[in-house]
Write a protein that binds this DNA or RNA. Sequence first.
DNA 1: TCCTGTGAAGCAATTCACAGCT
DNA 2: AGCTGTGAATTGCTTCACAGGA
Lengths: 210, 210
Amino acid sequence: MEIPFATIERISTYLRCLKRLKEKGIKKVSSRELSGFTKTTPEQIRKDLSYFGRFGKTGAGYDVSILTRKLERILKHKKIWNVCIIGAGSLGSALAKYNAFKTEGYDIVALFDNDPQKIGNNIGGKEIYSIESFPEITEKIGIEIAILTVPQEAIEEIEPIISKSKIRGIINFVPQLLNIKTRRKITTLDVDLAQKMYILSYLIKNKKEE
Amino acid sequence: MEIPFATIERISTYLRCLKRLKEKGIKKVSSRELSGFTKTTPEQIRKDLSYFGRFGKTGAGYDVSILTRKLERILKHKKIWNVCIIGAGSLGSALAKYNAFKTEGYDIVALFDNDPQKIGNNIGGKEIYSIESFPEITEKIGIEIAILTVPQEAIEEIEPIISKSKIRGIINFVPQLLNIKTRRKITTLDVDLAQKMYILSYLIKNKKEE
DNA sequence: TCCTGTGAAGCAATTCACAGCT
DNA sequence: AGCTGTGAATTGCTTCACAGGA
């Protein structure tokens, strides 16, 4: 069965909420309660979960711990993913320091740049390596996910280097699609912040009055 | 007619591509050519555009300049939007320096923080103001969009302050939904980077072999 | 001939409604 | 009574196929 992409997006939201509930010591949650923390309906939550199995108890809702574990297993087949950042500019450096993903099991362990001035420096305890050593270093450390934050002009130089490596996934902050050959080989997810701005201003303009 | 959200997302991608083409001096583009820069089909592009009008010439494609202008008008009813950043931590500061939106007409002009140490400082030429002065300053400067990059714990303190202001749109990097009252009043767009990580690892795991 | 614009068809996702468990 | 899980109905989106203009 083909699982809708939107379902995957929502599942990761549910997981985030469940983790919060768990921290708060809450043991049980119903689809109705969970929907209060998201923009979805209880039916949608149950349908989404049903793609992957039966996790609830009829009449009683879901066990927070169990559901958390199950959803984690659905979304992550490794407990810890090593992640690197390509492009140690302001955004790349910030993400390295920010490191909001570590608690979720995505650990930023290295940065790469082509600026000799930067190479060897440390950002938030992570070393900046030369982009030339990308394939070796990533393989040695066991990095399979890269966050791409290079300037747009650098994209063409970078792509073949990534392509040669063992990288399996890219989060791409560069406002340009990687070429089709790269995308076929490596799963890429585009995050275009300028696009978000456009969308937001459209939504503001066309906000429904209530 | 109700315009699909996905259409709005794609339209902003088309706009980005058109701007690039314009810079390169390209005058004409067909839906087929444009689809080469996106993940869409020519039919989808034509359908998306048809929600808003007829912009092409049969047999000849689209005039890049004209279409750019039209799409900009669809997505932005103001030429320049002033934007502020709430939370001058590493992510907020990076976005202020990064400023990739300026060329798109979204200009970051101020930051806000609650740390007395930071207030008065300058980041990329933008002053950091006290969060207490948020409603006055934003109104004075004419800021209608805020980028929210505060730590999660600060959310509850921040929300009533934003609510009291003239802010109309929020790009929310905090991995938590704002409360429904705020969301009804202010258009919010959530950008959860940890969620992207989860989605990426799911996609890696379930990548279709070809 | 080439390309746009668009109804109609086809497909996919969401919502409904209820059976069944506790 | 309260809640899950899920076929069926519905809604919404995308793709098809073609009329019509340059």
